Simulated assay, not measured.
Amino acid sequence: MAVDKMIWKIFLDILVLACVGVPLLVLHLLVEPYHRGYFADDESLKLPYKEQTISEAILAGVGFALIVVTVVLIEIVRDKQGKGVGEKFLSGSLISGWLWESYTAIGVFAFGAACQQMTVNSAKYVIGRLRPHFFDVCKPYTTADLNNSGYIQDFSCTNTNAAQLKDMRLSFPSAHSSFAMYTAIFFIFYVQVKGRWRGSKLLRHGIQFAVLIAAWYVGLSRVVDHMHHWSDVAVGFAVGALYGVIVFVYILKPKKYGLPGTWEITQPEILPRPVLSR
């Protein structure tokens, strides 16, 4: 019966993940973003087009690789130290406890990443904010009187590249910044709770800071590359950080890992009884 429950749990996990991932894929492939207009004198939309420093594929690959390697290494070490959950039965076979714990943590991270990306990308398509390189990519032309029209919504683009014309409307918020910060916060919390090593007081915190700075750099690169306005990056950071905290605290539930403080319910310390005065 226990085996059936574990298989059923894995099946439901995959189904729930697909329920978030498939709509995200449909959004990218089939949905057209809102066609927002522009002001002819808007200087924030007149920056030149640049190739992005960090692509979506590289960011996703590095982010997931970082979490997978970190989780697996920490769980193997904890299992060797006798701090793991012990072996589990799956389809009549024993599997190591570190493998099951790794599957749980990586699965939760992937689910949170999908939800976080669905949140920011749905906002992109609903709002349709133009990227800073809008004029350079679109090269718009219109029959409206630019001196009297003010806000221009009826226009066409000289550029005929459909992919670029769609992407130029997906500025707010920054999905790169959101995923980078989500990954950094999840990594920092995971290492803080489970990656304990007494060999150095600052090594763990130094690694955490390095990952946070890497996420910070991802956001800054989006502004430097003229892919986003600074406010797009700021909101992306906020959404990613919020999802990182919520997913780790309320889905992965760190209290079972022995994190001190309000996340763990412990027995009150028994103080020695005072020596009775003679």
Rank of each mutant, 00 (worst) to 15 (best):
N121I: 02
T158S: 13
K50R: 08
P48D: 09
S174K: 00
T70I: 03
I54W: 14
G107P: 13
E56F: 05
A180H: 03
K124Y: 06
G150Y: 07
W100A: 01
P140R: 12
L47A: 06
V120G: 06
K80D: 14
F64P: 04
N147A: 14
G82R: 02
A60C: 07
V126I: 10
F134D: 03
A105R: 05
C138S: 07
E51W: 04
A175Y: 05
A113T: 14
A123W: 03
V137N: 01
N121S: 07
D79T: 07
S96R: 10
H133W: 09
A105P: 00
L146D: 13
I54D: 08
R78T: 00
K83G: 02
H176F: 09
F111T: 07
L47C: 11
S102E: 06
G84I: 06
Y125I: 04
V72A: 05
Y49F: 13
T158E: 14
I152F: 08
T53H: 02
Q117N: 15
Y103E: 06
T158P: 05
I76A: 08
K80F: 13
S174V: 03
F134L: 05
L73I: 04
G63S: 15
G82M: 08
G84N: 03
I95N: 01
V120N: 01
R78E: 11
K80M: 12
G86D: 09
F64D: 11
V126E: 11
T119C: 12
K166S: 00
C138E: 14
A65L: 15
D154S: 12
A163W: 08
G61C: 10
K50T: 06
Q164T: 00
